[in-house]
Design a protein around this nucleic acid. Structure first.
Lengths: 210, 210
DNA sequence: CAGAACTGTTGCATTGACTGCACTATTGCA
DNA sequence: TGCAATAGTGCAGTCAATGCAACAGTTCTG
């Protein structure tokens, strides 16, 4: 890799077991940067942190920092970038064996499960998110990015005149529930997966209405 | 104004009628920049457009450009920045006279109605949004920014153990519907308000389920 | 084991977004 | 007409982000 491709989504096709030394180091470096980013934001606030300082604390060059993360914010949030493709194929598969509603929920549940859950980092991230609400936007933006593709996948599975409109709504609402789950998991310090379950049960209650 | 404050949200407290010459000119300049931004994105793509070029086409200095818009993207989307405060007070008022569900919907409907609808610009904007999906993120981000405040307002109006969780879900779902409305209005070239109505009627259909 | 093929890391140079500051130009009002 | 307020501007500077070329440690292959 000649340093041109900023984010390259380790595909990790198999079971993720027994990575090469190389891959191991890569993840290590990545994590060091992620942690450094979180710590520095807690210490100096989002505006008081530069990519340079993060790289410095993580023990890498600035250039390397941007080889791993597309933006400064990605490093803070720990966003790798391959979530989109995974979600699309996952949804496509599920639509063949279950209802639209269930497929969306299952896909989301899966996506949430794929988020690495490091207990130590969770506490840090919680602080960061409370300190810097503007990061919520960025965070939800990452999901939103794949919106269009998911709408297309869904549209094929829906019948009727307004298929596309309904697809749009399905996608948006599913993201809304996922975002809620993340928000709640942050606030309560519980893991996103169980927060998602709670959200669904609340949402399905007849009296919540909208 | 000493050029330090990037965006200053014309408060426009009264009925917005009969502005001074000064205010008129200000809006004129703003619109020129907004239009120039949209045109240039259509012509050269988001990445091919610099703030400098937008300013140039609009006949102002680069510095002036950033006195009006917080970011390049704001200029493209025409986001002023005072939507948040309006929404909060609007919601607070409505919660006193109607249900949570209705209040949220009414507030959103109001927010949508406040978006200026210039027929000429709408077509341009439609093209831009189709060309540059990444702008959708930015677009929805503006609303999302006030999430926390809205959750707080809502929480007071809700009873029970999970009041805050329910508030989070309410807010997220409402935004989801609003985003859907904007997406659909863009695609169909209809105005956002009626798109919102369509979304609500689709969403309320019993068989859409999630 | 040696050399080739990869792939990660780095320094350098550059572009472009955005900001603070000092200053000028208009406009609204007394 | 003169003064206060505010929009516009030029300039210098910071920082995010990217392409490029050189280099280094790892993995593969014979």
């Amino acid at each position: 890799m000649h340093a041109q491709t900023p984010v390259d989504h380790d595909h990790d096709p198999a079971g993720a077991e027994e990575l090469g030394l190389r891959e191991q180091k890569k993840r290590q470096t990545r994590m060091a940067m992620h942690r450094a980013a979180l710590e520095l934001v807690v210490e100096h606030g989002l505006a008081g942190v530069t990519a340079q300082r993060i790289a410095e604390r993580a023990g890498v060059s600035t250039r390397t920092f941007f080889n791993h993360w597309a933006t400064k914010e990605s490093a803070i949030l720990g966003v790798i970038g391959d979530e989109g493709k995974r979600a699309v194929t996952s949804l496509r598969d599920k639509l063949e064996v279950m209802s639209v509603r269930d497929a969306m929920r299952a896909m989301m549940r899966e996506a949430i499960a794929n988020v690495p859950v490091d207990r130590g980092l969770r506490e840090l991230k919680k602080q960061v998110m409370e300190q810097e609400p503007s990061l919520h936007l960025v965070s939800s933006g990452n999901l939103q990015a794949m919106q269009t593709e998911l709408v297309e996948v869904l549209e094929e599975a829906l019948d009727g005149e307004d298929a596309r409109d309904r697809a749009v709504i399905h996608v948006q609402v599913s993201f809304a529930l996922t975002r809620s789950a993340f928000a709640i998991s942050m606030r309560r310090g519980i893991d996103p997966a169980s927060a998602f379950d709670q959200v669904l049960s609340l949402y399905d209650e007849p009296d919540i209405d909208l």
